[in-house]
Design a protein around this nucleic acid. Structure first.
Ligand SMILES: NC(=O)c1ccc[n+]([C@@H]2O[C@H](COP(=O)([O-])OP(=O)(O)OC[C@H]3O[C@@H](n4cnc5c(N)ncnc54)[C@H](O)[C@@H]3O)[C@@H](O)[C@H]2O)c1
Ligand SMILES: NC(=O)c1ccc[n+]([C@@H]2O[C@H](COP(=O)([O-])OP(=O)(O)OC[C@H]3O[C@@H](n4cnc5c(N)ncnc54)[C@H](O)[C@@H]3O)[C@@H](O)[C@H]2O)c1
Lengths: 224, 224
DNA sequence: AGAAGTTTGTGAACGCGAGAACAAACTCGT
DNA sequence: ACGAGTTTGTTCTCGCGTTCACAAACTTCT
């Protein structure tokens, strides 16, 4: 049989830098749709997304030719195409492990649902957390992980445990069949090939800011 | 007068990619110190930080020559040098604006203090939040921003408000004298030159994972 | 002291991403 | 129908970051 992929969707590999920007474009387009805009130019969209218009056009060109020269892009249509390319036209089931300070905030976060994700389970090792419901989802024992992942076909896991527990949690997730992990713990996770890990690290972000802040002060000193 | 900078600290500009990794090295070194390690090779440290050893050595070479050939690095000494380079040998005062779900988690986060930052104020526009204390710090009116920034000489601000409010908050922060912003709201902030903005965006991270996850599934289909 | 072994620091090659610049393709007015 | 104006898609160039590979510098053993 011939490949099921359409001509507009060959298995081309989109540069990683572009992939990281597509969600930004998606959000900018959603904002435009909500504002009732039906068409926009690369210049307008680029401004809304905070990037250079040449870069935007180049990024979009990896997806296909969805614009019209002399006119611009159909906002609704482009939004759907990007959502499809990212894979958020349907909801992805997600489990969150570690329902402490941060886990609670994540579980309460309404932006999940509206952006292509659905929290199907909240897990914690501490029995005192169990039975509590956060945003309508009950906190369950960590031991339930394997069953939930299998039953609900979960591919994405979020780790919000202390750093010391994060590698163990990741190992269990991978063994259970999870292949994408978002790690909020300040740790470096080791995972097998084929498993993607992204990390969100507050301290690192602040320290990067601190570095530049320090340079600003010393630059000021030189002038003074 | 001759420049106050020492020969080991010329105003060389460290590549941005390296700056982003220094905090990772710092954390790995702190872990090693806690484990009682006194010396380590670039290979060991690179493994702990999750990077290639050649990259680690090149990164460190921008700071100076702090290793000993044939031996490796003195863990404690290197840790101090990196902390000094980043600028976290003293604490930076930080204000957090928007004490909702996420703001509470951030305010309760103990990792701030241990990594070079000190939360000096929690601000929220909603009067019902005021007077509440989170981790020993009282939530105060957003209108207090200017006074606090001036009195405590705050350079770094964290935004944890809804997206619609984030630009207004950023404008007020900049006007008050803040020059580094960490933005948790899903928005693109416009700020003047000289002000640094970094963003942490949960949805973007998840969507990047979703993109790769989708590719994994379609790759599996091709095989099947 | 000297040879063998170890590990750092860096020069050089390579690949990817950013941005400028322009031809192609479309709309609109006449 | 045709020219003027607009905006996309793409080519080309440049700079940055990654990685390899190796000389320099140190330790250890004989
Ligand atoms: N709170 C923040 O704003 C913040 C910011 C940045 C990073 N972090 C990081 O996020 C993580 C969580 O932070 P927090 O403030 O929510 O901590 P927390 O201590 O409040 O919550 C951690 C939760 O994980 C659970 N847990 C511990 N071990 C577990 C295991 N093996 N399996 C399942 N659950 C387990 C605990 O029972 C607890 O409920 C930490 O690694 C922290 O460094 C937090
Ligand atoms: N909760 C999460 O896990 C999470 C995850 C990712 C991103 N975010 C983003 O972080 C932000 C905060 O999320 P949240 O869940 O804490 O929301 P939230 O509604 O619980 O809290 C927002 C807080 O900001 C305050 N606020 C509103 N306008 C303000 C203003 N102009 N000045 C000062 N304070 C103001 C509100 O009073 C409220 O207390 C949102 O932009 C959200 O999209 C949250």
């Amino acid at each position: 049989m011939v490949s099921a992929r359409t001509s507009s969707d060959p298995a081309r590999d989109i540069p990683e830098a572009t992939v990281a920007r597509l969600p930004v474009y998606l959000r900018a387009l959603t904002t435009l749709v909500d504002a009732g805009t039906s068409t926009c130019s690369s210049e307008e969209l680029a401004q809304a997304a905070g990037v250079n218009s040449a870069k935007l056009r180049k990024d979009l060109s990896y997806l296909g030719s969805y614009g019209t020269r002399g006119v611009g892009y159909d906002v609704e249509y482009l939004r759907y195409q990007i959502a499809r390319e990212i894979g958020v036209t349907q909801d992805w089931p997600v489990v969150i492990v570690g329902i402490g300070n941060l886990g609670h905030a994540l579980a309460n976060y309404s932006g999940f649902r509206s952006r292509g994700f659905r929290v199907v389970a909240l897990l914690d090792a501490d029995p005192r957390r169990h039975q509590e419901a956060v945003a309508g989802v009950v906190v369950r024992p960590f031991a339930d992980l394997e069953r939930i992942v299998e039953e609900q076909d979960v591919a994405i896991g979020v780790i919000a445990t202390p750093a010391v527990a994060s590698q163990d949690v990741a190992d269990r997730m991978v063994a259970a069949g999870i292949t994408s992990i978002l790690n909020f713990a300040p740790s470096v996770l080791a995972v097998p090939d084929g498993v993607d890990v992204r990390k969100v690290d507050l301290s690192i972000e602040l320290q990067i800011l601190a570095y530049h802040e320090q340079r600003k002060s010393s630059a000021a000193e030189v002038i003074a």
